[in-house]
């Protein structure tokens, strides 16, 4: 049965790359007079920005389109600013075999939607920060001290015990408790320079509020679980790269219906001009009822699904900041 399903990633990345170049060459040669692409002059470009391919001196078009082969899985478009290279990879959810591999490593059931091959990597000769689902899930507590339960859990278990008390046909097993909300303190996997804790190192908002042109943007989900339709847990990443800096936001949003809401934000800010890396971890949390009281209109639960709306109203319970200066 399975041979009917085409295998994903069956072509090696270098073949894709070659095929892509070939395709580009054929299609471009078919168009007789392609007008030169007018690019807005980049004034503030102090640092060379490239996609690892040489650009035409007059019009700025990238000559060889080959995106950089990033991770062994597949090559994806990436961008390079100064010494910083940014790679992103987006893939479908894991298949059954990959899920088995993950579960044998993790020792817990993986979330329903697990984008195990999605990656963000920020790479510098002195520092590398990776974001991936596997590392994030490794930090999910396997035996949490305060196990969250769904709103009707105690009622449910009680009725179960009562019902199956004298029923030898039904043997119940209990799953070893783990944090099924998939809350993780994951802040990315860092190799190279260690970051120094300093809560005063704030991310310069004024620089990020400027509407500088975005050179590169990507967003992806690392994992998502609907908590058996008792809410949602989603770990997602957004990254935007400007000429002078980049901002990465990894956000974990947990909503357990009628129980609680929780947001864990990890922001990585990199100033390319100063070679400065700041990482901020911020946790917000509130009981479900308290936030629900702030909802208005005849569809209040729509607001509870709006992550941005929630993030503006949840009180901050923890902030940690770290930094690293990568002067060469």
């Amino acid at each position: 049965m399975s041979d009917r399903v085409p295998k994903y990633n069956s072509i090696d990345s270098f073949q894709i790359d070659a095929a892509r170049q070939m395709h580009r060459l054929t299609t471009s040669s078919r168009v007789p007079m392609r007008p030169p692409v007018r690019r807005t002059p980049e004034q503030k470009a102090k640092l060379p920005v490239s996609t690892d391919s040489p650009s035409c001196a007059s019009c700025g078009t990238v000559i060889t389109p080959g995106p950089v082969a990033t991770l062994p899985i597949k090559d994806t478009p990436s961008i390079k600013v100064g010494e910083f290279k940014i790679y992103t990879a987006r893939h479908p959810i894991l298949n059954a075999t990959e899920i088995d591999e993950f579960e044998s490593i993790l020792n817990l059931p993986v979330p329903e939607m697990i984008f195990g091959n999605n990656r963000v990597r920020i790479s510098h000769p002195k520092l590398e920060i990776d974001f991936c689902a596997l590392d994030a899930l490794k930090l999910v507590e396997s035996n949490p001290s305060n196990l969250i339960q769904v709103s009707y859990a105690s009622e449910w278990v009680k009725s179960r015990q009562h019902k199956h008390h004298n029923n030898s046909d039904v043997v119940l097993e209990m799953y070893k408790p783990f944090d099924w909300t998939y809350t993780t303190p994951y802040k990315g996997t860092v190799t190279g320079t260690t970051l120094t804790r300093d809560d005063e190192m704030k991310i310069p908002l004024e620089k990020l509020q400027r509407q500088d042109p975005i050179l590169f943007f990507d967003e992806m989900v690392l994992y998502e679980d609907e908590l058996g339709d008792n809410g949602i847990s989603v770990l997602s990443i957004k990254i935007r790269v400007m000429h002078s800096c980049l901002l990465l936001l990894q956000r974990l949003f947990v909503r357990v219906d009628n129980v609680l809401l929780r947001i864990c934000d990890t922001r990585v800010y990199i100033d390319f001009e100063d070679d400065l890396v700041i990482r901020e971890f911020k946790q917000q949390e509130l009981e479900y009822d308290k936030l629900f009281r702030l909802c208005t209109g005849n569809d209040p639960r729509k607001m509870m699904r709006d992550i941005n709306w929630c993030s503006q109203r949840l009180p901050v319970v923890k902030v940690e900041r770290e930094f690293a200066k990568l002067t060469t």
Partner: peptide, 21 residues
Amino acid sequence: DFLALPENKIAKKAPYVEYFM
């Protein structure tokens, strides 16, 4: 994905992205 070139990603997608904080 086959046709996705870096320019597409930068030039096309950029106008629609939010300046998230």
